[in-house]
Amino acid sequence: MANIRYTRDHEYIAIDGEAGTVGITDHAQKALGDIVYVELPAVGAIVARAEQAAVVESVKAASDVFAPVSGEVIAINSALEKQPGAVNEDPLGNGWFYRLQLSNPSELEGLMDEAAYAAYLETLD
């Protein structure tokens, strides 16, 4: 089982070693509805924890997506340009946004694990 951590804003990062794959959670994609456009950071961009790194747009509105931790963008999911609906269909798989080389892995301690995120979702709505 991959080691996945979650933010209170419903981003996830699936960690492997010093890198991680970032996207939005199933709860987030359901709340946003049909996604029609994703604006991704450039490869090589430096992102800081809790700062805007991407934008996701549904038919109705645009929403900021924040970086769960700090690091350098080492890959982006270019397939989302043509298939933004992958975020709805498979948010933790084909709907990933970008890969990050972590600059401060200790920031992961501030994120929720699976159980904590599930409990957090229970407190919403």
């Binding site: 509805g33 049909d34 029609v36 549904s58 038919v59 109705k60």
Partner: peptide, 9 residues
Amino acid sequence: VQFSLGVLG
């Protein structure tokens, strides 16, 4: 604002 099908559908 929408039903189960969603805005696109």
